[in-house]
Computed example of a mutant assay.
Amino acid sequence: MDRIKLRRAVARTPLAPIAAFPKRLRTVARHDAKVLRRSARWLLTSREHHNYTYDLTSLSRNHLAWFVSVVCDIPVKQVRAYLGEIESDDGLRQHLLAAIAASDRRGLADKEIRYARRIGWYAIVRATRPTHVVETGVDKGLGSVVLASALLRNAQEGHPGRVTSLDINPEAGYLARVAPWSEVVDLVIGDSIASIGALDRPVDLFLHDSDHSRAHEKREFDAVEPKLAPGAILLTDNVTSTNVLAEHAERTGRRFLAYRESPANHWYPGDGIGVAW
């Protein structure tokens, strides 16, 4: 009996799980070895302790382009142009490198500039041309600068806008404190729910990226709902952990989609973008 016939015969017997074990073990070992190599390299070369940054795989980047294309109802070719626009912005990249190098917190930030799913935020802002963007959760301010860059490009094309960035940490947002990006960023320090309640103009695009507990995420979307402009877009950075935005979309009669990123050469499995519109 040849090897193929023998395997097929064994597969029909109670010995099948035992016979398959070595192959299953090799598969798991190869996967775990890859993760361990990436983890070890990250431990030795990265400074980040949270809010990890990385590039997307080419497949994940392509899926992101289609995701934005569907949400914003624009050709995917245009979305790819927006993604390339932020990725090739040397002025922004040099600013970020200089700001990180000069910061007292540089020991917790990598020197390489990698945007991950934030390029999707950029493309959505470029496509929808919002007048007022609100983001909760700023940390170093990388996302704020990405959003501001999109708004500055929109302004050059005759569609100005501003981003209100909310964070409870008074040290947050050091990357967004330099012109020209700072010229379109209003950094507000305080509790996000109270800050949302104090907003004095309609919100065209809202991004939750603060306290990632389910209860707080829900409170933010409930708080911002009466502040939204007609046709406003809601985004969450928490979509891989909760179903809060999907439930909010269903409750308020909106559509909902989720995208999950795949980091390139990183141990972290990635986050995503949830959108309701």
Results as ranks from 00 to 15, higher is better:
Arg219Leu: 10
Glu157Gln: 13
Arg30His: 11
Gly161Arg: 08
Ala246Ile: 03
Tyr52His: 13
Ala194Thr: 15
Arg114Tyr: 00
Gly137Tyr: 09
Lys5Pro: 01
Leu175Lys: 09
Ala246Thr: 08
Ala127Arg: 07
Ala81Phe: 01
Asp204Lys: 15
Ala150Val: 06
Glu112Trp: 03
Ala150Cys: 08
Leu92Phe: 07
Leu108Gln: 06
Leu43Gly: 10
Val244Asp: 04
Gln156Pro: 03
Ala194His: 14
Ala19Lys: 00
Asn265Asp: 14
Ser103Val: 13
Val35Asp: 05
Arg114Val: 01
Thr45Tyr: 01
Tyr52Phe: 15
Ala33Glu: 10
Leu151Gln: 08
Pro230His: 05
Leu205Arg: 13
Gly120Arg: 07
Leu36Glu: 10
Val275Lys: 08
Val76Phe: 05
Ala81Lys: 13
Glu220Ser: 01
Gly272Gln: 04
Arg254Phe: 00
Asp2Glu: 05
Ala150Met: 04
Pro14Gln: 15
Ser39Phe: 14
Ala11Asp: 13
Pro160Lys: 12
Arg126Ala: 04
Gly107Leu: 04
Gly272Trp: 06
Thr131Glu: 07
Val184Gln: 05
Trp66Thr: 15
Arg177Asn: 02
Asp90Ala: 14
Val239Glu: 06
Arg219Gly: 06
His266Arg: 11
Glu217Asn: 09
Thr164Ile: 12
Arg129Val: 07
Ile18Asn: 00
Ala150Gly: 08
Lys34Asp: 06
Tyr52Thr: 00
His63Thr: 11
Leu108Met: 04
Pro202Met: 08
Asp200Ile: 00
Thr242Leu: 01
Ala194Ser: 14
Ala179Phe: 01
Ala99Asp: 13
Gly173Cys: 02
Val146Thr: 10
Ala179His: 07
Trp66Asp: 14
Ala11Ile: 08
Ala176Leu: 09
Asp222Val: 11
Arg38Leu: 14
Ala223Gln: 14
Arg251Phe: 01
Asp32Ile: 00
Leu15Phe: 14
Arg162Val: 10
Arg80Gly: 02
Glu261Ile: 10
Ser60Leu: 13
Gly270Trp: 09
Arg24Lys: 10
Asn154Glu: 10
Glu225Met: 10
Leu245Cys: 12
Asp237His: 15
Trp42Met: 03
Ala19Arg: 01
Val185Asp: 02
Val35Gly: 04
Ser195Phe: 03
Pro75Ser: 12
His95Gln: 14
Leu92Gly: 03
Pro22Gly: 02
Ala20Tyr: 03
Arg251Cys: 00
Arg251Tyr: 01
Asp191Glu: 05
Ile74Ser: 04
Ala98Ser: 14
Arg153Ile: 02
Trp277Val: 07
Arg117Leu: 13
Asp55Phe: 06
Lys5Asn: 03
Tyr174Cys: 04
Arg214Phe: 03
Leu166Phe: 08
Ser144Val: 13
Ala98Asp: 13
Trp42Arg: 05
Trp267Asn: 02
Val71Leu: 08
Leu187His: 05
Glu250Arg: 12
Ile273Gln: 12
Gly231Asn: 06
Ile113Ser: 09
Leu36Gly: 02
Lys5Ser: 11
Thr131Cys: 04
Val134Leu: 04
Ile86His: 08
Arg93Gly: 00
Glu225Cys: 06
Ala123Cys: 06
Phe21Ser: 09
